[in-house]
Design a protein around this nucleic acid. Structure first.
Length: 113
DNA sequence: CTCATGACTAGCT
DNA sequence: TAGCTAGCCATGA
């Protein structure tokens, strides 16, 4: 199915589907979303899809950068909005960052719990 | 066509 | 930890 004849609209459709599949209280990186949509390396495309998204039902706020940072400029409206929505779902947001699934806070915690 | 831009990433210093 | 660089790719001027 991933033939070189697919349109951009179809790709955007897949990306939105993947974003919709992110469970509440969870987050995913742009690159991860793209990869799940069958588009490895297209993190930028995923970001573009969200930037041009018009669907109010799309949980775009669950998508962050690979390092857990919110992609919007700190202090911007989008930045505040995303942080607000994430915290409303129980996601810990500290200084514009969220804890990524496979990222430990400290070595001690990783070893000793 | 070329050039600049951006809700990105990984690697190196 | 932080900053810089190069690669990435769709869009618009």
């Amino acid at each position: 199915m991933d033939s070189p004849g697919v349109h951009q609209a179809a790709l955007a459709e897949r990306i939105r589907a993947v974003v919709r599949a992110i469970a509440p209280g969870q987050v995913a990186g742009y690159g991860e979303v793209a990869r799940r949509a069958g588009l490895p390396g297209r993190a930028r495309l995923a970001a573009r899809v969200l930037s041009s998204n018009e669907d109010p039902q799309l949980p775009w706020h669950r998508v962050v950068r690979s390092d857990g940072r919110i992609a919007f400029p700190a202090g911007s409206e989008g930045f505040l909005e995303q942080g607000r929505r994430l915290q409303a779902e129980g996601v810990a947001v500290v200084a514009g960052r969220v804890r990524m699934p496979s990222r430990t806070t400290s070595l001690d915690e990783a070893i000793w719990g």
